[in-house]
Design a protein around this nucleic acid. Structure first.
Lengths: 329, 329
DNA sequence: TGCGGGAATGACAGCGTTGTCTGACCACCG
DNA sequence: CGGTGGTCAGACAACGCTGTCATTCCCGCA
């Protein structure tokens, strides 16, 4: 900028004015400055500018793994919200590790990002102190965090599972099993609890059959065999996420068990699988958008108490959930 | 930092030294400073630091749409490379628009990112001047760009298609159709050309049957019907990307045509579809990693001529490509 | 011709750091 | 007891920009 100023025989301030389209520069002066800028290939250093102004016009997104479609859809939505507000988005992966997440967040705070959207690795709020001290607004997604209440955007896990159970029951199923993920995950617990609650609420026979934990085709098979034989054989399965849906699907195929299936989480091509899989669809893009909007509201000065938004889920009925329950019993 | 300095009765420089673990501070002084830092919740402002140092320790990734698995896998890989080098990653979507891409790149250059990885929206190199002037290293991915040679990481489209054709021919197919994407896309042209070339190279009967353009189930059906009837009916199809694979799959299912299929691009659950789809797998994660590594090499001063790397593809054989061609004709 | 007043321009400080250089202090040696 | 050399600490400028305020310019008018 100093070079341009010298070359155009004006002060740096005048160059600054021209660059920022501020008023108060005579057209011919502005023209001259612009010519020099063009000739020298000058480009404003936004880092310096932003530092002067105390804001970075940057927000950040911290997730476990960007390659995971759930997170990448969130990423795309958050980026979009950022872009239309002239902000840039820094994305970072914590790889599921709370300590790495903490390090990442500290680095982001060090850069003075204006705000952060996080899908937290655990519920420990380990970065709370840092965020508090730096007054960096944060929005949590997909699972809540203990401690100081913060803006949070969740999926309606309970409603989703409930709709799945009800759907199956409406089609005559009375014996339904649930395969959930490791109960260390909050969402896994939510879904399991919703299954059990709905199961009991509807007064289904026998106690709910639930299998939690990381699942493989093998681990699924082990429970699937006894549950589908015996006196009260299951006729349908609900799964807690799409990895498990996959495992169950493979196990069912392998064992040639024609059970109904409703999976939590939609996935690409669920419609093409044979049989097409009925799913509880959650909308990561909508969640991401909501979270970003909430964050920007804070950036614009919204000081209302922290809010938790629960985004609706939707049952997408495809063939796999339609198979009628066997007659009798 | 000034506050800390005052409170600890030292100069800002000493605080700086403590913060950065520079030598030459007496342990007790350092301890005192650290205590004040802790008490005041001071945190170094990395923006200012980086500005002083002239580097931002930030790279950027510009793609069409982060939600697309191809790009998000690239994103995850690039982020990983950045993270292990203590850099941050800014991701930006151009939504396939060259002008938006240009605007995005200019904004990034304005922020003085250290380097950029781009999956270009078109071949026009519209940001070349900006990049040239700012000396920002750039690596292009997935498709080349005209003009000044730049580092580029491509997929072996030709080899991939060739292996698909050869695979089908080895299984007895003589009449194979190709459905490609809009020839406006460089990759679509590459794949089509490779199909035609291989087709001719192998001396297959009749002229190659090729259908390009954005495809829907409907548009596929329209050519599929005549091609699979008539004197030289096709017995296999090769598709140019996974959206088209999907359309063809649906069309085949609808028309109840038992043709063999090999798709370009793997996709989640390709193995679960009935029949499991044989695909030419390209590895976006490896491509992203390679591109990032190339970029960092430049950042470390590598001044060798621009390089084009072609990443191998791999044929993943599943049932859909194994069906034998009908005997006789 | 002188003057008032708005428009155009510039000087300067400061955003929060760090690199460079200078200075204070201390211990040790002859 | 003076000199030497090393350690620790601080002053200052600079990175590239912008906000504030002061100054200059120019025009119209009396």
């Amino acid at each position: 900028m100093a070079d341009v100023a010298a070359e155009a025989h004006v002060s740096v301030k005048t160059v600054s004015r021209v660059v920022n389209h501020e008023p108060g520069v005579r057209p011919d002066t502005a023209e001259r400055v612009r010519a020099v800028i063009e000739r020298l290939g000058f480009r404003r250093h936004d880092g310096a500018r932003l530092m002067r102004q105390g804001r970075t016009f940057t927000i950040a997104l911290v997730v476990e793994d960007l390659a995971n479609p759930f997170y990448s859809q969130i990423g795309a939505a958050v980026e979009r919200e950022a872009r239309i507000r002239q902000h840039q988005l820094i994305t970072a992966s914590a790889e599921g590790s709370p300590s790495r997440e903490r390090a990442v967040i500290e680095a982001l705070v060090g850069r003075r990002v204006d705000g952060i959207v996080v899908v937290p690795a655990d519920e420990s709020a380990s970065s709370d102190a840092v965020l508090e001290a730096s007054h960096t607004p944060i929005v949590y997604m997909d699972r809540p965090v203990r401690g100081t209440p913060r803006d949070t955007v969740l999926s309606d896990n309970q409603g989703g599972i409930r709709s799945a159970v009800e759907h199956l029951v409406a089609h005559g199923h009375r014996n339904i099993a649930f395969y959930g993920d490791d109960p260390a995950f909050w969402t896994a617990r939510q879904r399991r609890d919703a299954f059990v609650a709905t199961h009991e609420g509807l007064g289904l026979p026998s106690s709910p059959r639930v299998s939690m934990g990381p699942h493989t085709v093998g681990s699924v098979r082990e429970t699937l065999i006894p549950w589908s034989a015996g006196p009260e054989p299951i006729s349908a399965v609900i799964t807690g996420n799409n990895r498990i849906t996959l495992a169950v699907l493979l196990a069912l195929r392998e064992l040639r068990l024609p059970l109904s299936l409703v999976g939590f989480d939609d996935f690409e091509l669920a419609a093409l699988i044979d049989p097409p899989v009925t799913v509880v669809h959650q909308d990561p893009a909508a969640m991401g958008q909501k979270a970003a909007q909430q964050l920007f509201a804070r950036l614009l000065g919204d000081e209302s108490p922290a809010q938790t938004v629960v985004m609706p889920t939707r049952l997408i009925v495809r063939a796999s959930g339609l198979r009628r329950a066997p007659l009798g019993r």
